[in-house]
């Protein structure tokens, strides 16, 4: 048992999801504070219990998404805290930063062993924004503090570079780093658009390190924290829940599928996992 855990949200120049991320962490029963990329000393002094790298376009995605932020001094601290086992979550651009930092899959310390490459979809290129479905792998559910998640989860994606890529010699060991996979509303995986929206290897939507404490995911759970954030046409269980809550009058206060990631972490700190 510990006092209210503090989750640090790291803001880089160009991050644009830090405030809603901070808010949903607080709504999940934890404390949260935003630290700018150059506040590494303040970050170090406040001894956070976990870290979130939010979505956005750090350094305007110049050179390659996440590449410049990965070299920032504050990432030395995040890297070292992850080595000590503290939970780290990267969402969208945050995931790109974790990949470019070599923190996931992290088979060899600090080595960059994967990439979040440009989406590869027949007939179109560039930015893609839509709702997808995913499920957590069995291994991730066991070892990842963010992922006490069963069933099929709808979440929004919004990215141009979200295709997980691994070197061919590493394909054999990628499965054990798989944390989240794209699927349809019934849980069936497919490598084809729109089920796999970007051509990601093994339909990967999220990748973790071997210990499971670092998770890089492209979808945005903070944008599906409340049921009212779900679109009316969403099929599946969560679409039904949305309709039911709307009819029962609990629409405004009912938590959505994205909340599971953050309540999962809160439960982890309570020792309930």
């Amino acid at each position: 048992m510990m006092s209210v855990p503090l989750v640090a949200v790291i803001q880089f120049p160009g991050s644009n999801c830090e405030y809603e991320t901070e808010r949903v962490i607080r709504n999940s029963g934890m404390d949260s504070r935003i630290y700018r990329w150059n506040q590494w000393r303040e970050l170090k002094d406040s001894l956070p219990d976990a870290y979130v790298l939010p979505g956005g376009f750090s350094f305007q995605d110049r050179i390659r998404a996440g590449a410049v932020a990965a070299k920032e001094r504050i990432m030395d601290l995040v890297f070292s805290e992850a080595e000590d086992g503290k939970p780290v979550l990267g969402i969208c651009n945050g995931a790109q930063i974790l990949v470019e930092s070599g923190m996931v899959p992290g088979w060899e310390k600090g080595r960059i062993e994967s990439a979040l490459a440009a989406n590869h979809i027949s007939g179109r290129s560039g930015y893609l924004s839509r709702w997808i479905f995913l499920h957590a792998t069995a291994r991730a559910q066991q070892i990842c503090p963010w992922l006490e998640i069963n069933g099929i989860i709808p979440l929004p994606i919004a990215h141009a570079e979200g295709r997980f890529v691994f070197s061919e010699e590493n394909h054999g060991r990628t499965e054990r780093s798989a944390a989240l996979k794209y699927c349809d509303e019934k849980g069936n995986e497919s490598g084809d658009y729109p089920v796999n929206p970007n051509g990601s290897f093994l339909n990967l939507a999220g990748v973790m390190n071997d210990r499971g404490n670092v998770l890089a995911m492209m979808p945005h759970p903070e944008r599906a924290f409340w049921l009212w954030q779900l679109p009316p046409s969403l099929p599946g269980e969560w679409g039904d829940r949305r309709t039911h809550s709307l009819l029962s009058g609990s629409y405004a206060s009912s938590k959505g599928p994205g909340s599971l990631f953050f309540t999962s972490l809160a439960d982890f700190f309570k020792g309930e996992r």
Binding site: I63, R64, A67, V68, A70, K71, M75, F79, E100, S101, G102, G110, R111, I112, E113, S114, A115, V165, F166, S167
Partner: peptide, 11 residues
């Protein structure tokens, strides 16, 4: 590596 190179990810 995290502290080696910037412009291209060979993966």
């Amino acid at each position: 590596y995290r502290d080696h190179g910037l412009l291209a990810n060979p993966v």
